Amino acid sequence: MIDPRETLREGDALLVIDVQNDFCPGGALEIPEGHKIIPPLNKWIAAARELGVPIYASRDWHPERHPSFEPHGGPWPPHCVQDTEGAAFHDEVDVGDAIVVTKGTRFDKDQYSAFDETGLAEELRRRGIKRVWIGGLAQDVCVKATAIDAAKAGFETHVLPEATLPVTPEGGAEAVAEMRKAGVTIES
């Protein structure tokens, strides 16, 4: 595992993806052992804060009748419904002063990527960001979509494997292959 204090520098940003109660054990769409990514993420968050690297925390923030929910034709059980405990950031992830990126609010489509119609790419460019570091949940859904979109937007993109977990191991392996094909660096 790389040391964030020796790695992060000016022109970097840390993206913490969807570490919300519904994606952690006991949640509506839990990632098995999803809470285990929190200590490594907190290490990166602390280092970013110490070094003045901006931190962005994305969240799913779905309306009750979101099109991604099974009752409305989607593939997922209802999760991260606006203003519910399930939509809250996990209380152990230290995102208190992070800039929150809200996604998944549309009634006509889902938004897996933190870059999908959120203005995040423009925000990062305005701040002179060239390189992004990504961790969170789930590796094979929102982390993958965010990392691929970051690379497409021209950012040097790194995913922290110790700070992300997939919905399924098979999905995780496929996601790693897709991200690498898109030019994303999967750190070791």
Results as ranks from 00 to 15, higher is better:
A121T: 01
D108V: 04
D60W: 04
A114V: 08
A13V: 12
R126W: 07
E123H: 12
P54N: 09
N42Q: 12
P63T: 09
R126K: 14
P40A: 13
H90I: 05
E70G: 03
G96P: 02
E117D: 15
I45V: 10
G27W: 02
D22Y: 10
H35S: 05
R59A: 10
D60C: 06
A47K: 07
G136Q: 06
A163T: 09
G128M: 08
T102C: 04
M1I: 11
T157C: 13
A153G: 02
R131D: 10
F115R: 02
N42P: 11
R9A: 14
A145H: 02
P63M: 04
G86E: 09
R180Q: 15
R65S: 11
I45Q: 01
V100C: 03
S58E: 06
A173C: 04
A88M: 09
P169H: 07
I55F: 04
D22P: 07
G96N: 10
L8W: 00
E174T: 12
L51I: 02
A46K: 14
A28K: 14
G104C: 10
S188N: 12
E70Y: 00
K109E: 00
H79V: 07
A182E: 02
D149M: 09
F69Q: 03
A182L: 06
K181T: 13
G11M: 07
I186F: 06
N21C: 02
